[in-house]
Amino acid sequence: MRTVHTDTIIKAIKEMCIEANYILSDDISDRIIQAESEETNIIGKEILGQLVENMKIAKEDMIPICQDTGMTTVFIKIGQDVHIEGMFLEDAVNEGIRQGYDEGYLRKSVVGDPIKRVNTGDNTPGIIHYEIIKGEDIIITVAPKGFGSENMSRVYMLKPADGIEGVKEAVIETVKLAGPNACPPVVVGVGIGGNFEKCTYLAKKALTRNINTPSQTEYIAELEKELLEKINSLDIGPGGLGGKTTALAVNIETYPTHIAGLPVAVNMCCHVNRHISRVI
């Protein structure tokens, strides 16, 4: 049995909130730089050039990449042989977010009640997903996500007869409907299977996977590739103003489902796809 104090967790989450909002992971930034050199649409290329410049300014001058520093999603995998001491874990996670958004000069974008809409002033609470794993590690992934793209995400409760073609149509339709609103070039997270809430969780989780790592399931990896090509032929382009860089990647996660269903969730993410993981 290993013991981890919540002070360690608070510090880690604070640092990850800040880092994620100032520095994009290499997989995303490299893909944007590559897209700029390959884009042939004049406006599209100009916009990608601004995004490359923006990443540089963000890092050098310590200005967040995007002003929407997001609602903070935190995935915590807890080894079943770990004992957590200190404060209540949920409070510790929110304390890490609070400190990160304060010390990191990040925007406080959370309202305490969805109808009355008063800002909580510290970007808490976050959205926390717990998972129990084997062993003695705690693995934390922090994924701040803006709502320009979140608002353009969709869930489809398809029928088994809709099959893989139905899945493709659902993804393409979502990307088309999102158009310029989701800040293309986007990363498309897709969850297939499970049930109503599981598929949305899978779609979110898919966005945290390195975009250079395809699905381990061969036919799903092919589907990711095919959908990316189809999306990039829609001529939505950077900023929605035309070009072949509409998506940087399509990441798909799957799960077993019911004999009567084929749930599909499409979680749109802008090019500022922020996620960072640490093992404690």
Binding site: D61, I63, P64, I65, C66, P180, G239, H271
Partner: peptide, 13 residues
Amino acid sequence: FAAVGGAGALLSK
């Protein structure tokens, strides 16, 4: 007008 979404650091300048 549209400004480039997600270029907040650049635009702040």
